[in-house]
Design a protein around this nucleic acid. Structure first.
Lengths: 340, 340
DNA sequence: CTGAAAGCGCTTACAG
DNA sequence: CTGAAAGCGCTTACAG
């Protein structure tokens, strides 16, 4: 077993100083061509690689990005990470991934763990619990210490920082608008509880679209789900009592669950009820029927978030100007919706 | 903006030496109760946290684990990461995630990037290209440098290290055995090309099960897929020409794709053809019909892999004894299979 | 052209 | 009980 070689060892072997070795390897013209060659050859032979940790300490930058997301077993977030990882790598950065599991405490602990020098900046999406508590001290604190933060998807107005989001309200609006165009008027909504920022915005879009088209909004056409595990009865009730001809669900899971329940009740999608979901993930694509959906482009979102963070990290002067970037969405029509 | 405070600054403020501050914070009895109190209070006030990078350099351990997987947008791998992250966190470790995108070069680059001191050890699953090339120098090298590696799922016998796998052959055997028990005899197989280790093993299980039950293996009942994008025609051919009454697919995507094609050809699952897939992911659970499958328990696999690595990292003496751990699998029956 | 010194932020054996 | 020194592995301004 040959341990990793250090400058010190090379210096000793070659009987020169550490400085000389260091400079030679960085190809400094300060050092004679001859010495440089010799050192470089030796370094290559022993496969010398500078120690990243030492560099980080010296440079006060780690070239790693901390990512904190609610969960990874979720196609959208996996896609986002993929986008971040790619852009990070292209720019010589690594990513440390932490999962909050939708818990405020884990989010705080994770940020704490990473804020102690391990990373140069954060990219994060808020946990549900954090959104419920509306407590953002941990984030403010990190920002106050001069560590940049980029928030994506689940963001809050209460923290000033760069953000990457989609226009959730508009996206939902587009879906409902499409339904109305297709002459559906009795449109049900399967959404999250209001404290989930993106769920709330999508609900707003639904309401706005109906209202603008002069359709009255009935609160009993809206099912607000706290917990996916026991949402069946509420959705079944909506279907049975209100007989919607179309349903808009604010995520994939709600959409596919609705479809399963519709089938179970002896109705068919799209013949009896048309469905549009949200997030163009694995489920939407592979379900039978395949599910119409609003695409969210997690890859792009992740890529942009990483880019924003890296740009800020590599900016010369501090810049207190924060931007919020919008990623465009698209309504993708599949088998779950009837068209005229 | 208040920058992070260091020992040096505390020392200066309090007019004591850095050593005294360091010892006080670690509650060393070497320091007078009085001084300790004072320092601790001050540190708390200024929210002092030791710099991780400095600690890493000093201790020569980073308390981070490098994870290299082929892709993350894949329910199984996402689950595995989730399991690793959890166990890592419980033990005070962080995880750096790198994606090889199934590319040998990216795998090498990523390992190189992390092997320079950024992490204490690797957990990895081989990229397809690496398996094809059978080139494991980069892994050997890392191990030679004294950095432990744990391989999971896509492993190779050519590298000596700890491993966590399932018994792919046995799992496939179980699926086929079940089919035969249910009186299916004309069983098709949708598998990967042979160089993908787990695909090959599952193919072996299929062959073994048939052979042991005295059923002849016809190579034209086996479809070997290189690339999911254009596999349709091959599967269609199998269905049309060989009229299987059951199909075993070695992953979720192959299973759902087969079902879609079966439907497209006017046949039904499970009435005309029963299907069993592999990996109990999102697709298997939410498809219509839901897909019978071999569970792989990625969460457990990830957790075990992390545990193995951490145990090795924290072992006193070097241990050249490597172990391969088997995670049990289970056949989960759902709507896609007919039973007697 | 080469090297000693200081420094990044920390810990710890040692001296006083 | 306190602090100076050495060291983890590196870089760079400075001296010679």
């Amino acid at each position: 077993m040959k341990r990793k070689v250090t400058l010190k060892q090379i210096a000793r072997e070659l009987d020169v100083s550490i400085s000389t070795v260091s400079k030679s390897l960085r190809n400094s013209t300060e050092i004679s061509e001859d010495t440089r060659q010799k050192v470089q050859a030796f370094a290559k032979l022993y496969n010398y690689r500078p120690n990243n940790i030492a560099l980080s300490l010296k440079n006060k930058k780690t070239k790693t990005i901390g990512i904190i997301i609610p969960e990874i077993v979720h196609h959208f977030f996996a896609t986002v990470i993929s986008g971040m990882e790619q852009v990070a790598n292209e720019n010589g950065y690594n990513v440390i991934v932490c999962l909050s599991d939708e818990s405020f405490d884990k989010e705080v602990i994770n940020m704490d763990m990473l804020a102690n020098g391990s990373i140069d900046g954060f990219i994060m999406s808020l946990s549900k619990e954090t959104q419920l508590k509306k407590d953002f001290h941990h984030i403010e604190e990190v920002i106050n210490q001069g560590m940049p933060v980029v928030m994506f998807d689940r963001v809050t107005n209460e923290v000033l920082c760069d953000k990457v989001i989609i226009d959730d309200q508009l996206a939902a609006y587009k879906a409902i608008d499409f339904f109305i165009e297709q002459k559906f008027e009795n449109i049900g909504l399967v959404t999250t509880v209001d404290y989930v920022s993106v769920g709330k915005l999508r609900t707003d879009g639904y309401i706005k679209a109906l209202t603008e088209h002069g359709i009255e909004v009935h609160d009993d056409m809206i099912v607000r789900i706290e917990d996916i595990e026991n949402c069946a009865s509420k959705i079944e009730k909506l279907i049975k009592d209100k007989k919607p001809d179309a349903i808009f669900a604010v995520n994939e899971l709600f959409a596919v669950t609705s479809i399963k329940l519709i089938n179970k009740m002896g109705l068919r999608v799209p013949e009896d009820i048309s469905v549009i979901g949200f997030t163009d993930g694995i489920i939407s694509r592979f379900s039978t029927p395949s599910i119409s959906t609003i695409s969210q482009n997690g890859l792009k979102m992740g890529g942009r978030a990483a880019k924003m963070l890296i740009e800020r990290l590599e900016m010369e002067e501090e810049n207190e100007q924060y931007t919020t970037e919008l990623i465009e969405t698209e309504l993708i029509l599949r088998e779950s919706t009837l068209t005229l």
